[in-house]
Structure formats: structure tokens, C-alpha cells
């Protein structure tokens, strides 16, 4: 009888179950299901309009879903009692959302606040730290991303790569369990890309944060991720570690996208 004892399986950090989303009749996500365990580094690839950015925006609660459910470590984001999912009311959603951070393609820094305040204020607003502690932490984070001397500048006085690092520091300051990156390298010089990769690896090594990254850069995805998801028409057509997905994908669309010869040729 001892063999009947249930094996304890932790909830995945992110569980997306049967999620669909359409914008004005165009299906962007088509009954998508996906589990991501804690600590995984996932790269989302695929042609434009395949739904990969929409996934990040839905996880950040910037978009809603038409059907399905999303669980963050077992905690639902949507109320599905009425049949169609409704985002939880703000007071119940905030604890869930506080576990998620996002770095935007165009950074979204607050232009009227200094670099330091960009990082310190969200902590204060979330009740994570008192003013002095939050500012001290912001200084530390700025040093970590190599911008220790830029604390009192305004975001507009930084280069794209520097803004990117401030945005990362701002997201990190809230100590999220999940970090979402929307095309983090598309606005950067090619030379800066490896710096960003170093920072990502440092985050993964020191915090164990689950990371989801949307990118168009295959090389970046290959070096960053331990799991690649290939999207097409709102569905995942390829799912596996980079060495398999990049060298021997099964799906014809993935092969075409990567410029590999068709399997039945």
C-alpha cells in the first residue's frame, strides 16, 4: 500500500492552460497550454504576429484572455466561475502580479524621475522598503549593472543600452519570481548584446528567477535559454532544449524559419 502514496509534485511556476486570445477576429493565441517550472530560462521564438509577445503581455496582465486560465504557482489570475475568464479584482490580483516583473522593448522608464528614483520608487510604492533602504538598494543594483555613476541622471540622458540596464535593475528591485523580457536586444548595438547576456546569466545564477524572453536573435536565444519554444499562428510548434530545436527540429515551419532543409526532401 505504501506505493500508493502520492508523489509530491510542486506546482509549475507558470501554468498556462488552454488559453485563447483574438484581436478583432484575428486569432493570436489558439488553445495554448504550457507549463514552465521554477528557475527555467525560456526563449520564445517565432515569426512576427505568432503570439509570443502576447504571452508576455498576458502574464503581466497588460492583456486579457478570451478563454482558459493562468496559474502562477497554483494561484489563478482569472475568475472563471461565469464560464468566461475575468481578471481577478485589483486587490486580489496585486499579490500575484507582484511576483512578476517585465522589461519592455522600449524600456518604459519614467522620464520625470532620476535613474535612482526609477528603481527606488517602485519598491517604496509596493511597501517593500522604506525610502532610505530603497535608495540604498537602488544604488547597489545600479552598481551591479555597471551604472553606479549615473544615479542622478534622467533616463533621457542615457544610451539605449544603459536604459535597458536601468529597466532591468528596476524590475529586479521588486525581487520578482518571474522576469519577462520583450525583445531585450532589438534596440541595442550588437556589441552591447553580450553585456545583456552576462547580466541575464548573473540574475539566473544569483536569484534563480524564472525568465521568459521574446527575441528574434537565434544566437542570443541559444546562449541564454535552457528551453526554446517556437511559436507559429498562436501555437507552440516546437518545444525543447536549444541544442535539439536549433539543430534538428521536427516541425516543418521551424525548419523553414531556421533555414534548414525540409525533412521529407
Amino acid at each position: 500500500m505504501t506505493s500508493m502514496e502520492p508523489v509530491f509534485t510542486p506546482d509549475p511556476m507558470i501554468a498556462i492552460s488552454d488559453v485563447s486570445r483574438a484581436f478583432k477576429g484575428t486569432t493570436v493565441l489558439d488553445h495554448l497550454s504550457l507549463d514552465i517550472p521554477a528557475g527555467q530560462k525560456v526563449a520564445l521564438l517565432g515569426p512576427s504576429g505568432s503570439g509570443k509577445t502576447t504571452i508576455l503581455r498576458i502574464l503581466m496582465t497588460l492583456e486579457t484572455i478570451d478563454s482558459g486560465q493562468i496559474l502562477i504557482e497554483g494561484v489563478p489570475m482569472y475568475d472563471t466561475a461565469s464560464g468566461t475568464p475575468h481578471l481577478l479584482p485589483e486587490n486580489r490580483l496585486r499579490p500575484v502580479r507582484s511576483r512578476i516583473g517585465m522589461v519592455f522593448q522600449h524600456f518604459g522608464l519614467f522620464p520625470h524621475l532620476s535613474v535612482l528614483d526609477n528603481i527606488a520608487f517602485p519598491q517604496i510604492f509596493n511597501g517593500r522598503a522604506r525610502k532610505a533602504d530603497a535608495k540604498a538598494r537602488a544604488h547597489d543594483l545600479l552598481k551591479t549593472v555597471g551604472l553606479g555613476d549615473k544615479a542622478y541622471l534622467l533616463p533621457d540622458q542615457l544610451s539605449g543600452g544603459q536604459k535597458q540596464r536601468v529597466a532591468i535593475a528596476r524590475a529586479l528591485a521588486l525581487q520578482p519570481d518571474i522576469l519577462l523580457f520583450d525583445e531585450p536586444t532589438s534596440a541595442l548595438d550588437p556589441q552591447r548584446v553580450s553585456e545583456v547576456l552576462d547580466i541575464f546569466n548573473m540574475i539566473a545564477d544569483t536569484t534563480g528567477t524564472t525568465m521568459l524572453l521574446v527575441t528574434h536573435e537565434m544566437e542570443f536565444a541559444r546562449r541564454f535559454a535552457d528551453r526554446i519554444l517556437f511559436f507559429d499562428h498562436g501555437q507552440i510548434v516546437e518545444d525543447g532544449p536549444p541544442e535539439i530545436v536549433f539543430t534538428n527540429p521536427k516541425d516543418a515551419r521551424t525548419r523553414a524559419f531556421l533555414g534548414l532543409p525540409s525533412l521529407n526532401a
Binding site: F104, F110, F125
Partner: peptide
């Protein structure tokens, strides 16, 4: 719109978003 989205991503309340991010700008 990105400013509003950044506020959501920083988990600010509606009041904080208006008071400290949107209205000053």
C-alpha cells in the same frame, strides 16, 4: 501607453500611477 504599462509592471496602484507617474508628466 508604455508609461501605463510600466506602472502595471511595477505593480503600482491606480492612485500611485496617477499621482506619481501620469499627472506629473
Amino acid at each position: 501607453a508604455l508609461q501605463w504599462e510600466a506602472c502595471t509592471s511595477c505593480n503600482l496602484t491606480r492612485f500611485q500611477t496617477w499621482r506619481y507617474i501620469i499627472l506629473p508628466q
